[in-house]
Simulated assay, not measured.
Amino acid sequence: MTRIDHSRHILPTAANLLGFTFVILTSIRGLGLARNTTVADLTGVCVILFALSTLLSFMSIRSHGRSMLNYELWAERIFLAALITCVALSILLVFDLV
């Protein structure tokens, strides 16, 4: 698998997760489901990270040469950070720690 093929896998996944977390954030804020703002804040962080990953992945596909690899590397790192944040948020919610 080449680097550009890898970036083409990150883009749709990050975009889908961006939409999913955005719907969750809108539901939490709009319906007042969060007892405190920690859950909404962490969900907001996930939205921002997935948005950045989506943007960088798209830029990686559209660019050439060394800049392509830089965009893709940062897209992967930010995507992983977003996934870790979502896992942490899930653990906090499952064990009712917030």
Rank of each mutant, 00 (worst) to 15 (best):
M1I: 11
T2H: 09
T2D: 12
T2P: 15
T2W: 11
I4T: 12
D5C: 12
D5P: 07
D5A: 14
H6M: 11
S7W: 04
S7P: 13
S7A: 14
S7D: 08
R8Y: 02
R8V: 07
I10H: 02
L11W: 00
L11I: 07
L11S: 01
P12W: 01
A14S: 03
N16H: 08
N16I: 12
L17E: 02
L17R: 05
L17T: 05
L18E: 00
L18P: 03
L18Y: 01
L18F: 05
G19Q: 04
F20S: 15
F22K: 15
F22W: 08
T26S: 15
S27V: 15
R29N: 11
R29T: 13
G30L: 10
L31Y: 08
L33H: 06
L33Y: 06
A34D: 08
A34M: 06
N36V: 03
N36H: 08
T37N: 14
V39K: 11
L42S: 10
L42G: 08
T43A: 12
C46R: 02
V47I: 09
L49Q: 10
F50T: 01
S53Y: 05
L56E: 03
L56P: 09
S57F: 03
F58C: 11
F58E: 02
M59A: 10
R62W: 02
R62H: 05
S63N: 11
S63H: 09
S63M: 07
S63K: 08
H64A: 15
G65Y: 03
R66C: 13
R66A: 15
L69Y: 06
N70D: 12
N70Y: 13
Y71R: 06
Y71A: 13
E72P: 12
E72A: 14
L73W: 10
W74V: 14
R77E: 00
I78Y: 00
I78N: 00
I78A: 02
L80W: 07
A81I: 05
A82Q: 02
A82E: 01
L83D: 01
L83M: 13
T85S: 13
T85H: 04
T85E: 01
V87E: 01
I91Q: 07
L93M: 11
L93P: 10
L93H: 10
F95T: 15
F95R: 14
